[in-house]
Amino acid sequence: MDQGFKRRLIAAMGEAIIAHAEELTALDSAIGDGDHGLNMKRGFEAVLADADNISAKPLPDALKAIGMTLVMKVGGASGPLYGTLAMGLGKALPAAPSVAEAAAALGRAIEDVKSRGKSEAGQKTMLDVLVPVQAAFAAGGAGLATRLPAVAAEAADATVPMKAIRGRASFLGERSIGHMDPGARSSSLLVQAICRVFNEA
């Protein structure tokens, strides 16, 4: 993966999060503490500011650097969670992964996120997007970069009727039902941003 491509991936992720920061904050205000958009924006602004340096690194190191930046800058639980995802990918990915290797690495990184958040799919979190996206990714086939954004969007929608079990939203109990999980939404946005860059390649 060349530097320009990594640079475009970073830009696409950062721009998606920044453009949707208010939406993420509104989702989080409904069922949480209302800081998800701002926190993610702060984290990705820091990643964008360091994009030239990060994209010059080999893919695994670039992902570790992104993860570390998110951990240090986000300031909410989403920092360690997304940071763990990126660092986990950096740890599991070879420098030039095949599709199968990338899907397997994402699977391992998702396991890291589960232990960090002490959570599983079905609890109205980012995992409810990441797990089905990884499953579709691992199943492979043609047109992945076109299909995965749809899988992610549908999975985020599917968090609306769920009751939150983890995170601040769980304090609301039944009242968390009827709102999309902000972490599921931000995960879906990132999947869409990444796939768009692969589609344009």
């Binding site: 503490d33 800081d35 701002l38 926190n39 702060r42 951990v71 240090m72 800058k73 300031g75 909410g76 920092g79 360690p80």
Partner: peptide, 11 residues
């Protein structure tokens, strides 16, 4: 957090 708002900061 790092901006002085409510939150926590790993560093």
């Amino acid at each position: 957090n790092a901006d002085g708002g409510l939150g926590t900061d790993v560093g």
